[in-house]
């Protein structure tokens, strides 16, 4: 029962870190506002008053809070999806983008930017659905879903789409920077709509995993899940499709942010063990805290693309994990 105690402890710890980083994200920014001004703006709205400092109000309520929340929910959703993919595919390198969702979204976005079609998010979403469908068709034999085959199909479709993205970048001319920036992800466009959307996505990811956490445990333990009454085929279908859709929703909103979905579940597993009930809940909070922290760092360093920050932090962390394992 040690693990359940540790879980509560870590939950409180990570929850506090999340709260702290959310608070910091609201306090800190390009426009220098003193903590009192921020507090004033917060209080005014919460008390239902209008007027006061319009600039502080707009910065706090229309920029900083939705942005911090969107970052948190994206991190949470990606981490939960990563945990589901790793458990389901029995592959430690599986991540939310394993099914080619990211490159599909990137392709859709690049298409939209290059030809000035506008509507980046819907096209990115369409692109991710398209590549998901392709991977599914390739990876699924008529009667059985094989993890290795799916992963391979994901790699193949992703590399074809990457070639397409490179081609679009060549064609894009002046727009090439915009494509590169989108590819690395960012929360500069975050607003309340995005915060709401990603909130729903993160909850969907969490409950998707939690509703099947015992089945995930049995599969991850390497047992013959069918001998315990688990319908493995239907489970794979349900979870792979569900987690991929959530990932597609997230990626098309904020761009491709790597490493969070890969590293956070591994870190949590290292601390708490592989049991999926606890793993998913803690990954939700851990991913949220990490992403808010990364976004804060990106902002403080002059609006770096957030994918750069997560890769710079996540890469070495992952190296360390590998190093310690072997």
């Amino acid at each position: 029962m040690r693990r359940s105690r540790l879980f509560l402890l870590l939950l409180i710890l990570v929850g506090s870190i999340l709260a702290l980083s959310l608070g910091l994200s609201v306090l800190v920014g390009d426009l220098k506002l003193s903590p009192e001004e921020v507090a004033q703006a917060l209080k005014a709205r919460l008390a239902g008053q209008t007027g006061g400092d319009a600039v502080a109000d707009a910065v706090v309520w229309q920029v900083r809070i939705p942005r911090a929340l969107a970052a948190a929910f994206v991190g949470a959703a990606l981490s939960c999806c990563g945990a589901v993919f790793q458990g389901l595919l029995l592959n430690p390198l599986a991540e939310p983008y394993t099914m080619g969702v990211a490159s599909g979204a990137a392709f859709g976005a690049a298409l939209s930017i290059t030809f000035g079609l506008g509507a980046i998010t819907p096209l990115a979403f369409a692109g991710s659905l398209l590549s998901l469908g392709l991977v599914w068709l390739l990876g699924r034999r008529t009667d059985f879903i094989e993890p290795t085959r799916l992963i391979l199909a994901g790699v193949i479709v992703s590399s074809i789409l990457s070639a397409g993205i490179t081609l679009l970048q060549v064609l894009a001319g002046q727009q090439v920077a915009a494509i590169v920036l989108w590819l690395l992800g960012s929360f500069t466009r975050a607003d309340w709509a995005m915060a709401r959307w990603t909130f729903l996505a993160s909850l969907a990811a969490l409950f998707l995993g939690l509703s099947r956490h015992r089945e995930l445990d049995i599969i991850a333990s390497g047992g013959r899940a069918a001998a315990f009454g688990v319908d493995e085929e239907r489970l794979r279908l349900f979870l792979l499709a569900g987690a991929s859709l959530v990932t597609a929703a997230v990626v098309s909103a904020c761009g491709v942010i790597g490493f969070v979905g890969l590293v956070v579940p591994h870190l949590v597993r290292l601390l708490l063990g592989p049991s999926h009930g606890r793993l998913l809940v803690l990954s939700w909070f851990g991913g949220a805290a990490l992403m808010v922290g990364a976004d804060l760092t990106a902002r403080l360093l002059g609006e770096l693309p957030i994918g750069v920050v997560t890769a710079l932090v996540g890469g070495p962390v992952f190296c360390l994990l590998l190093w310690r394992r072997c």
Binding site: G222, F228, V230, S275
Partner: peptide, 16 residues
């Protein structure tokens, strides 16, 4: 077993 499940967790899978 490759993943570090605890003995309790594995035996409780039998209750599924």
């Amino acid at each position: 077993f490759t993943l570090p499940f605890s003995v309790d967790e594995v035996v409780l899978m039998g209750r599924y």
